[in-house]
């Protein structure tokens, strides 16, 4: 699956996107747990998720949403446009 990062999350992790392959469907929450194992930067970013929003294929989604390899996931802070 394609994972995108925006704003302060992109800045802190240091990349804007990456691809990972999973064997079975998992929840966003489980994906976050997987990402936290990738290093200190991920662990710090995802240590407190109350100010992190996510989307699956451009739709705002809860962390219990199930995802698969074909999905595009994005993590970002609450939006501030306008």
């Amino acid at each position: 699956m394609k994972i995108l990062y925006f704003a302060n999350i992109k800045q802190e992790i240091g990349i804007s996107e990456e691809n990972i392959i999973i064997e079975n469907k998992i929840s966003i929450f489980e994906l976050i747990e997987l990402l936290k194992k990738r290093g200190l930067k991920y662990k710090n970013v995802f240590s407190d998720v109350k100010n992190i929003k996510c989307s699956v294929n451009c739709i705002f989604s809860n962390f219990d949403t199930m995802i698969e390899n074909e999905d595009e996931i994005a993590f970002f802070p609450p939006v501030t446009g306008g």
């Binding site: 925006f6 704003a7 302060n8 800045q11 989307s55 705002f60 994005a74 970002f76 802070p77 609450p78 939006v79 501030t80 446009g81 306008g82």
Partner: peptide, 18 residues
Amino acid sequence: KIKATFWKKEISNDNTTW
């Protein structure tokens, strides 16, 4: 203001803040 995926960063001489 709460659904369109834009993020603003403020820039000043001293620092930048999301």
